[in-house]
Amino acid sequence: MKRSTTAVFAGVVLAGLAACGTPDESAVAPEPTGVADEVEALGSQEVVDEMDRLYQAAQDAGEDRVTIYGAGENDRGPVYEVFMARYPGIQVSGEHLTGPDFDSKISNEFASGQHVGDLVQGGDTSVAGHIEEGKYVPYTPLTAEGLDPRWTEPTNTVHAAAALPFGIGYNTNAVDSGDAPQTWDELKDETWRGRIVMDDPTVSGSSLSAFRALLADERFGQEYLNAMASQEPHNENGSQNTGAAVASGEFDIAGYYPYSFFIRESAKGAPMGFVFPTEGGSYVSGHYLGLIDGAPNPNAAKLLMNWLFTPEGQQALAAVGYYPTMPDSDGPADFPPMRDLDLIRSTPLETVASETQQALETIQEVWPK
């Protein structure tokens, strides 16, 4: 099965040659319908050719699906719908897994030798250990050329096509949009003492990741952590519960809150607003793509990996609330493009385990129970 744009291109070329006999070298042939759109969507003719090669290789090998594990897979269904429309016959299934569930799923498949998963698209702490254990095959998508080095690592085993924006959620019944904190520093204002809830940073999760980054940034550091600890924050078990606590009115402010969780709460009609801080530092967390060693559908998986870095793939990721990582991509919603952000330092994958442990110990020393 070939894509319709390729078939249209071939049909137009053959029809033109039959009608004209021999080509007129002085004439400029019009672009066949659909082909210009394809090149624009995928980035270049070189990319189109590589994607066609992978698509054909997947078909020849009988690969009709891609299974992907990781954080945010419950958000990306609309993204994969766009991919499947361009490459019919390949079904993409995402399974949302984080933390111990993510690790055990992959480890169990390696232990049994019965691989189901093809790709991971996980957070930094989730994928870092697996890189050291050799669970992913080094692979650099052609379409990831020009990717900022912060979104890969020295071995080029994984690459982030998207990053999750973190911000400040608030209950719109309790806080006017003009009064909501606009920066990370404004969370320290005494106005918000006792009114902030967040994913418990003394355990794991989104707030721990955010504080790890803030502690390593000279604009924040230990002084900022101490100030936030004095705000009498309420600790919740996970970002989902954090959002629910604000949506219900139990608390007014959700600190270090992932944008994807806000989108889900908004879709349910929750009275919530969201601020993505752009002054004084913005924080986004990369979701890294890796090809699992022993993947049952490697060609189809590489096709999806490449597509996610194309203009079309990047736009689809932005549409579901993620920051595309390629330099020319626009941001999600009305957020500025990533190239215009003052990004808070991302933790290198090669040191993420040690830095996370150090941050955890530092937080546990001062954080209210």
Rank of each mutant, 00 (worst) to 15 (best):
K2A: 13
A7Y: 09
V8C: 05
V8T: 14
V13D: 01
A18P: 00
A19G: 06
T22V: 14
P23G: 09
D24W: 01
V28M: 12
V28H: 12
A29R: 10
P30Y: 01
E31Y: 10
V35P: 00
D37I: 00
E40Q: 11
S44K: 01
E46Q: 13
L54Q: 05
D60T: 12
D64Q: 07
V66C: 08
V66D: 10
A71R: 02
N74V: 12
D75C: 15
R76V: 09
R76A: 13
F83I: 02
R86H: 11
I90T: 02
V92Q: 04
S93H: 13
G94W: 02
D101R: 09
G113K: 03
L119A: 08
L119H: 05
V120P: 00
T125S: 12
A128S: 11
H130L: 10
H130Q: 14
L142Q: 14
L142G: 13
E145S: 15
W151Y: 15
E153N: 06
V158W: 04
Y170P: 04
N171Y: 00
D176H: 07
S177L: 06
Q182T: 10
W184I: 00
D185V: 10
L187V: 01
L187T: 00
T191S: 10
M198P: 01
D200T: 05
P201L: 02
T202G: 11
T202C: 10
T202R: 13
S206D: 06
A210S: 09
F211P: 02
F211L: 13
D217L: 10
D217Q: 05
R219F: 00
G221Y: 02
E223I: 07
M228I: 10
A229W: 07
P233Q: 03
E236W: 06
G238A: 07
S239P: 05
Q240Y: 15
V246F: 01
G249V: 02
E250I: 01
G255T: 03
P258V: 03
Y259E: 06
P271A: 08
M272V: 14
G273S: 06
V275H: 05
F276L: 06
V284E: 09
G286R: 03
Y288I: 03
Y288A: 10
L291K: 10
A301Q: 02
L304F: 02
W307R: 04
P311W: 03
T325R: 03
M326S: 08
D330R: 05
A333G: 09
A333F: 09
F335P: 01
F335N: 10
P336C: 08
M338I: 12
L343I: 09
L343F: 06
S346C: 07
P348Q: 08
T351G: 07
E355T: 05
Q358A: 15
T362S: 12
